[in-house]
Design a protein around this nucleic acid. Structure first.
Length: 310
DNA sequence: CGACTTTGACCTGCGC
DNA sequence: GCGCAGGTCAAAGTCG
């Protein structure tokens, strides 16, 4: 069994750009849909302790009483800033509005914070590419963050709407926040991105460090691994996790099932975070080689070399 | 030559 | 209505 060693998760729907500044962390499923059979739910105890009623209301649409089939999917847990809560509530309200019958298609789509997205926080050592082919299409400095945010779109299929944003966490050195938006409308590519365009002579002073860095990363991206299992190979047993809005709990992969269970003792089986199926998608298919890919890469991530490509 | 990154300009949503 | 900030476009340049 492969053991993943990356940080935490949280499904974020309609998160704002302030995510990084507020330590929001991740949630690893691209194809999370309301039609999924298992949803988020929260225990009474944890609700009392960590969650406001407001948040509970917000997540109700995603709750599902499933008899206690729960899954812990990470090595640390995320938080949900209050701004996000507001955004989600707004989205919920908007979703209740009847869609216009007009056929007008705006050039720019709905603002991203109104879309479902998956936020993933990875340590530098854990950061690696997935198997999807991403093409960078923009980079913007983000207010409140010393690090820019890079924008990637799926380059495997022309019509694919999948997007990915990468930025370095300003609160935790060596931690990167990856946000996935929309879903892939195709199967995983068998080939990775090419190396073309990864090196530019525009930065004479940093060329060697940055570009060699990029090269090594992209090179590692090309390391292929078989399309393996797509779910739950993270080394954790099913579990229920709750977290304070502003509290982060680090759970190392060394934590065994019992330890984790003890942390959240008292949870109602019928109201647990049930995310096992949430992570059953293709998203994780590309993560199996994180360790292999990084153990062999020269990914000495630091602030001076960010942004980077992968 | 195709695929990619970079980067300034542009568009849109949102708060005041 | 205005200005800010985030997200996207597209031209230019790079690389295999």
């Amino acid at each position: 069994m492969m053991i993943m060693d990356w940080g935490l998760q949280a499904v974020v729907i309609g998160s704002s750009s302030s995510c990084s500044a507020n330590n929001i962390e991740f949630s690893p499923k691209l194809d999370f849909q309301e039609s999924d059979h298992q949803y988020l739910s929260f225990s009474h105890e944890m609700k009392k302790e960590f969650f406001s009623d407001e948040l509970e209301e917000l997540y109700k649409p995603f709750y599902h009483v499933d008899g206690g089939q729960n899954m812990l999917m990470g090595s640390s847990i995320s938080l949900i800033p209050k701004e996000i809560i507001k955004e989600e509530k707004r989205e919920e309200e908007q979703q209740q509005v009847v869609a216009p019958t007009s056929t007008y298609v705006p050039k720019y789509k709905k603002r991203k914070n109104e879309q479902k997205r998956v936020v993933l926080q990875l340590k530098a050592d854990d950061l690696s590419s997935d198997k999807w082919a991403w093409r960078k299409y923009g980079q913007k400095p983000i207010k409140g963050s010393p690090y820019p945010r890079s924008y990637y779109r799926c380059s495997s299929s022309k019509g694919c709407l999948a997007r990915k944003q990468v930025e370095q966490s300003c609160t935790e050195n060596g931690t990167f926040i990856v946000t996935y938006t929309a879903e892939h409308n195709h199967s995983q590519p068998t080939r990775r991105n090419s190396l073309a365009g990864t090196i530019k002579s525009k930065f004479p002073n940093s060329k060697n460090t940055i570009n060699s860095h990029k090269k090594s990363i992209v090179k590692d991206e090309k390391i292929s691994s078989p399309h393996g299992s797509t779910s739950n190979n993270l080394g954790f047993s099913p579990e229920t996790l709750m977290i304070d809005e502003f509290q982060e709990i680090e759970i190392n992969q060394e934590n065994n099932h019992e330890e984790i269970k003890n942390m959240f003792e008292g949870s109602d089986e019928n109201e647990c975070v049930s995310i096992q199926e949430m992570f059953d998608g293709d998203f994780f298919a590309g993560l199996e080689d994180i360790h292999d890919g990084f153990s062999s890469s020269s990914f000495g991530c630091n602030n001076s070399t960010f942004p980077f490509s992968f």
